Amino acid sequence: MVTRTINQLHFEDLDPIRFEELILSMVYRMRRWLQLDHLGKKGSDDGIDIRAVEELENGKNKTYYFQCKRYCKITKAQLHKIVDDFLDKNTEIPDVYTLVISCPLSKKQIDDFENYAKNNGFTTISIWTNSIIECKLYAEYQDLLFAYFGVNLTEKRNRKINSMRRNIVFKKRMHNDFLKSAGCKDRIELDERLHSPMKKFNKSEVLIRSIDDSDYPDNTLLEKDFTGYFKAEVYNFYHNGLQVIIGVKDIKVRQYDEVDNDKFEVGIIRVLEIGYLPFDNIIDYDYDGDEYYMYPHLYCDFINRNDPFEKIGYAYEHSYGWMIVDDDLVIRE
């Protein structure tokens, strides 16, 4: 199954003042501040970009200083200079000093900076590196993530919610249309359904069609190249969609050896090849089909080049009935 990742945020694309404004917006929401100042915007910040004052329950004030450095990388000497420049311009040490830096720091750099600052009179040191800032944005400040970087997690979350709701309705609709509504007429039919899950379906075949295929029905199933549709047999519903039979093959599996106990031997078994078709990839279906293929047509998003499946599995016939082969037993060559 194809997955997507989001690239790391590029704080260096923000100009220094814009970077400070981002941090200011984050700091603003941290507390109910008695006082909050953005000192770095005018250029003469004395080593303090953001100053915040919190009033404690005992009536005393607690001072926080935030120094923002939009760097791509930094050296040990530069880290020491940040402390030295602050002490050259200030006589008051804050209760909490936070260095906000847009690049990664090694553990050695963090330990060295904290030790150097504490040896020069600082009491409580906090460091926000690029990964910490990014983590905070994704977890707590998603509107700022959109405002500064255009990453809209709210929209993605809404799409997930709508997809989940759609799939619940779609699942019920497919169950009503595809599964036999009448109960078993006798014990023989009950045993058949228990042994073979495909027996509970009204129709045994489906035509899986790509929503991007515009040549149907001129392209034929006999052609070797990808045609945009293919026939399959229904096997069963699973938690995320519909399982269909797309072939029969022999595979190597690990089988438990009851004589030697806890040992596995390799065997070859004939299995049904099962395509796992998630509801997400079934856009819609025409249950009656058409004059060419008079069984259900499933219109699907082919997320892979030739099929819409999230994975391929196997089922084998056991004395108790058809069973799915455990993935960890399959030997893939």
Rank of each mutant, 00 (worst) to 15 (best):
M1C: 02
I6Q: 05
L14R: 01
F19D: 00
I23W: 01
R32Y: 06
K41R: 08
G43S: 02
G47H: 03
G47N: 03
G47P: 02
G47Y: 02
D49Q: 03
I50D: 01
A52Y: 02
E55M: 14
L56T: 08
L56S: 06
L56W: 02
G59N: 05
T63Y: 12
T63Q: 06
Y65D: 12
Y65T: 04
Y65H: 15
F66M: 03
Q67H: 04
K69N: 04
C72F: 07
L79W: 05
V83I: 15
D88Q: 11
D88L: 12
T91Y: 06
D95V: 08
S106H: 09
S106W: 09
Q109P: 07
E114M: 12
Y116K: 10
N119C: 09
T124Q: 15
I133V: 11
V151F: 11
V151D: 02
T154Q: 13
R157E: 14
S163F: 01
I168H: 07
K171A: 14
M174A: 09
K200R: 15
I208M: 06
D213L: 05
P217E: 04
L221R: 08
K224A: 10
F226G: 05
G241D: 08
G241C: 09
L242Y: 07
Q243C: 13
G247K: 11
K249C: 15
D250H: 09
V253A: 06
Q255Y: 08
P278K: 03
D280T: 14
I282R: 10
I282A: 11
D290C: 09
M294R: 13
F302N: 10
E310D: 10
H318C: 15
Y320T: 14
I324V: 15
I324E: 15
L329P: 01
V330Y: 12
